Simulated scan of single mutants.
Amino acid sequence: MRLKANAFAKVAKLTLCATFVLTAQAASARVLDEEPAPGMLKPGQKVYVRCGQGMAMLVTGGNNMKGGKGAGRQHGPCVPFKG
């Protein structure tokens, strides 16, 4: 029984650490003045790009290869943003 309790504690700690890392990455999205050049964003990487005073749009990196698999770069709408 003791072995199962230790294994559960380790799994719980790893889950908590993974959640913290993922949350920290999402919270630290960068705000840029202009959109990065093609190939500069990794697939799934998110940045905010200023599109007016107090406004920004979310840009998500996608497939960097023409004709490759997966979605290309995605642009969100220009929305009010504090940052």
Score class of each variant (00 low, 15 high):
M1F: 07
M1E: 07
M1K: 08
R2M: 03
L3Q: 11
L3W: 02
L3G: 07
A5L: 13
A5F: 01
A5W: 01
A5Y: 02
N6V: 05
N6M: 06
N6P: 08
N6D: 03
A7E: 10
A7M: 11
A7F: 06
A7I: 13
F8W: 06
V11R: 07
A12S: 12
L14T: 10
T15W: 01
T15S: 10
L16W: 05
C17G: 09
A18Q: 05
A18S: 14
A18G: 12
T19F: 14
T19W: 10
T19S: 09
T19M: 14
F20A: 14
V21L: 02
V21N: 05
L22M: 15
L22V: 13
L22I: 09
A24W: 00
A24G: 09
A24S: 11
Q25S: 12
A26I: 08
A26M: 12
A27G: 09
S28P: 02
S28N: 14
S28K: 06
A29M: 07
V31I: 07
L32W: 05
L32G: 08
D33A: 05
D33E: 15
D33I: 04
D33S: 15
E35A: 14
P38I: 01
P38G: 07
G39M: 04
M40Q: 15
M40P: 06
M40L: 08
M40G: 04
L41E: 03
L41T: 11
K42T: 12
K42W: 04
K42D: 13
P43H: 02
P43G: 06
G44V: 07
G44N: 06
Q45K: 13
Q45F: 01
Q45D: 04
V47T: 07
Y48I: 02
Y48W: 13
Y48R: 12
V49L: 08
V49D: 04
R50K: 15
R50H: 01
C51V: 05
C51L: 02
C51Y: 03
G52E: 01
G52V: 05
G52P: 14
G52K: 06
G52L: 04
Q53C: 02
M55L: 11
M57P: 03
M57E: 12
L58M: 08
V59N: 06
T60N: 05
G62M: 05
G62Q: 04
G62V: 04
N63Y: 00
N64K: 10
N64E: 03
N64G: 07
M65N: 08
K66Q: 10
K66S: 11
K66M: 06
K66H: 04
K66T: 06
G67H: 01
G68F: 04
G70N: 02
G70L: 03
A71C: 00
A71F: 03
G72M: 05
G72C: 08
R73V: 15
Q74V: 15
Q74P: 05
Q74H: 02
H75G: 03
G76T: 10
G76Y: 05
P77V: 06
V79E: 13
P80D: 08
F81T: 05
K82A: 10
G83M: 01
G83L: 00
G83F: 00
